[in-house]
Design a protein around this nucleic acid. Structure first.
Length: 574
DNA sequence: GCCGTTTTCGGCCCGACTGTTTTCAGTCG
């Protein structure tokens, strides 16, 4: 079992322990261990097998969890988890996803009504029986019903980052076979959608058919939905992501890649275009109607070219005018990961990050960045141990010292300052004025009306120290809806004031989304693509922000952190 | 359950808000 799956077992157990009402600190230990393992560079299973190493050397892993890890390695579970699952069915964990319900309420619900499923919960609410429980009432019933509806809408979708991880793991696994030359993800993953329903992989080479067998035999495949000589479809991992693998001859690789990348609407449009030209487009080839002579099939470029089009980047294939733009050679030159010169939003151990200032700077230097900005939380976010003016002032001094000894990268002084309920910023101007960059974000009062929330944010932007509005809609994919906001007004206000908007690359945030990104661009507002990293590992989230930016049609010049440092500094002055 | 130590037990980021209550538990971040 890999670290990610182990982390999942630990954090699920922690959730169940919370429902069972166990000691909070013990629960925190399990959560902490899960978080550490998720980002740990070395596989736990390898450490266990290596007699010269100890899992207890991993910070956050002591004797207790070490023995749980050994048990997991041997039999895929551990005693405490089994005990918990005897008390509460695993479906109870799903209830934690419903806003307004926490572990205590779930326990009460289970004790009174034996309810542990979403369907059961919905019935209890509809029958007005939730309000009969202690400390619950009518408003909670309504809130829960709303939340259940939202939960159902998003069920069955997986975060882009998760699908990327599975695609990489399976590609590496299949490429071990001699004769497998290429394994390429298609579908919504290739289009960079923020969530994907299933994963499509294409394999080519003389050994591609053997890859189908190897694929179905992967240790993490727990159900084979179908398998033939050229295609297999499976449920993968504990999470049950559906993965389809297709073996293809080299000569039809381009046609297949085009076909399976979609979107469906893009392909329909493309096929009707082919028809008008006396051609027919399928997953095997672009061919002449009648003679069946193949016109193009080996590469996507050949196919688009034969249809009189420039090649269209996958992120644009949504039938939103991209085919017409390709015909007129008016496709935007999309921003690319390699254009990014720095990262403008990240945290350190001073607030809720896991790495120190020095470690973050070093990791960024290894990524080849020219600059980064350190933006720890401000004091209002007490849970994150936010900085007050005094501590921020110390960090400024420390950053100055670091810059003197650092070679090849510049660390910009910054903060992620909280936008308070009234639109004021959480730190005085006297300290903000000493910074290179101020990211300002909303972390509270998500329930304001759209008018009030919009006013609040625009008032924050009135502060001339504000450089970038962080994660502007506050959504968490699969967990929390964006707050009500008049984004048109926010964008207009940003343009008038010379503020920038953020694309937050955290896989569950990714806001602004593609539509909003394009709105900003169309209204002349530039964006920053930032990772909001809380560890050195998560600096790599940049790719997800880039995907979102590309879907929003951004070019290099639309993105401020593609600029050299001197230019960026000029842009940051208001 | 982990960590760190004045080495064997005490501390572990906690404040704001909400809906339910009559004084606060539970949720959220």
């Amino acid at each position: 079992m890999d670290n990610r799956e182990i982390a999942r077992l630990l954090s699920e157990t922690a959730d169940l322990m919370e429902i069972a009402g166990e000691d909070g600190f013990r629960i925190r230990s399990y959560r902490n261990a899960a978080a550490v393992l998720e980002g740990y560079p070395e596989q736990v299973s390898a450490i266990i097998k290596d007699p010269s190493k100890k899992v207890t050397d991993i910070p956050g892993i002591g004797k207790g969890i070490a023995s749980a890890l050994e048990e997991i390695e041997q039999r895929g579970s551990f005693e405490r988890r089994d005990q918990m699952l005897e008390l509460y069915p695993p479906t109870a964990l799903e209830l934690l996803k419903i806003q307004g319900l926490g572990p205590k309420s779930i326990r009460t619900l289970f004790e009174h009504y034996r309810v542990s499923t979403i369907d059961g919960l919905e019935r209890i609410c509809r029958e007005h029986k939730l309000r009969e429980l202690p400390r619950m009432g009518e408003k909670l019933e309504e809130k829960v019903l709303r939340s259940i509806a939202q939960y159902r809408q998003r069920a069955g979708r997986f975060l882009l980052s998760f699908a990327y991880g599975v695609a990489e793991e399976l590609s590496a696994y299949l490429l071990e076979l001699k004769g497998v030359e290429r394994v390429t993800p298609a579908g919504s993953l290739r289009r960079g959608k923020e969530t994907v329903g299933d994963l499509d992989l294409l394999a080519t080479g003389p050994g591609a058919e053997a890859a189908i067998e190897k694929f179905a035999a992967h240790p993490k495949v727990h159900e084979v939905l179908g398998k033939g000589p050229n295609k297999a479809s499976v449920k993968f991992g504990l999470e049950g992501l559906q993965v389809d693998l297709r073996a293809l001859p080299d000569e039809s690789y381009g046609a297949a890649l085009q076909y399976f990348t979609g979107s469906k609407e893009h392909n329909i449009n493309l096929r009707s275009r082919a028809q008008k030209m006396g051609l027919t487009l399928s997953e095997y080839s672009l061919a002449r109607v009648g003679s069946k002579e193949v016109v193009a099939s080996a590469t996507e470029e050949d196919i688009y070219k034969a249809l009189g089009l420039h090649w269209i980047p996958p992120e644009l294939r949504e039938n939103q005018g991209e085919i017409e733009a390709a015909e007129r050679n008016e496709l935007p030159h999309l921003v690319d990961l390699k254009h990014i010169r720095g990262d403008l939003h990240m945290h350190t151990t001073e607030s809720d990050g896991r790495a120190t200032l020095d470690e973050m700077a070093e990791a960024a230097r290894e990524l080849g960045y020219e600059y980064i900005a350190i933006t720890d939380h401000s004091r209002r976010v007490t849970v994150a141990h936010g900085l007050d003016a005094r501590r921020l002032s110390q960090q400024i001094a420390e950053t100055d010292r670091l810059n003197e000894k650092l070679d090849g990268i510049t660390v910009l002084k910054g903060v992620e300052v909280d936008i308070l309920a009234d639109g004021k910023l959480d730190l005085p101007d006297t300290i903000l004025s000493r910074l290179d960059i101020v990211v300002a974000s909303v972390h509270s009062h998500f329930d304001f009306t759209a008018a009030a929330q919009t006013e609040r944010i625009i008032r924050a932007m009135d502060n001339r120290h504000l450089s970038i509005l962080g994660h502007p809609t506050g959504r968490l994919i699969g967990e929390r809806e964006p707050y009500a906001l008049d984004l048109d007004r926010v964008i207009a206000a940003a343009r008038e004031r010379g503020c920038f908007l953020e694309i937050n690359s955290q896989p569950e945030r990714l806001d602004l989304n593609d539509i909003h990104v394009q709105m900003a661009k169309d209204n002349g507002v530039k964006l920053a693509i930032s990772t909001d990293a809380h560890s050195t590992n998560s600096l790599s989230y940049m790719r997800f922000g880039i995907d979102q930016a590309r879907r929003g049609r951004l070019t290099r010049s639309d993105v401020i952190n593609t600029r050299p440092l001197a230019e960026l500094r000029k842009l940051l002055k208001r």
